[in-house]
Design a protein around this nucleic acid. Structure first.
Length: 114
DNA sequence: AGCCTTTGACCAGCG
DNA sequence: TCGCTGGTCAAAGGC
């Protein structure tokens, strides 16, 4: 439906020196931090929308270039950069996108000690 | 020149 | 009370 699946591949550098391929959402994201979640044994990157009116945030968690998890937090104040031929789903509220299949929301069900 | 990326440190909240 | 983690910000460097 409103799922604008722009399958573009963006490359980000992994602390290990690898290249991660993230699907472009049609927005400009600015990376503002990266941390290693010991509780999960995975890396987590923090992205923020470049628009000042945009308070949307993007988070990427991955343990391997083949196992990446991405979810969005907040909502966009402007339509997707990718000219929405039709109505873009950029005005949705909290939504977490599962690019690599279905998974869990941003909420941590429980922190299993590592 | 501008823009983006990366790392470290700091802070806060919670157990 | 302390420790720990997670999250954000800042600065610098590079292209």
């Amino acid at each position: 439906m409103e799922t604008e699946e722009e399958d573009r591949e963006e490359q980000y550098t992994d602390p290990g020196g690898q290249r991660l391929v993230l699907p472009e959402d049609g927005h400009g994201w600015k990376k503002y931090g990266q941390k290693f979640i010991k509780k999960r044994g995975k890396f987590r990157s923090y992205f923020k929308c470049q628009k000042q009116n945009c308070v949307a945030k993007k988070r990427v968690e991955w343990s391997s270039p083949d196992d990446i998890r991405i979810w969005y937090e907040g909502s966009h104040n402007h339509a997707s950069s990718t000219q929405g031929t039709s109505s873009s789903a950029a005005n949705q509220y909290n939504l977490y996108a599962q690019v690599f299949g279905s998974d869990q929301p941003p909420s941590r069900p429980h922190d299993q000690d590592a």
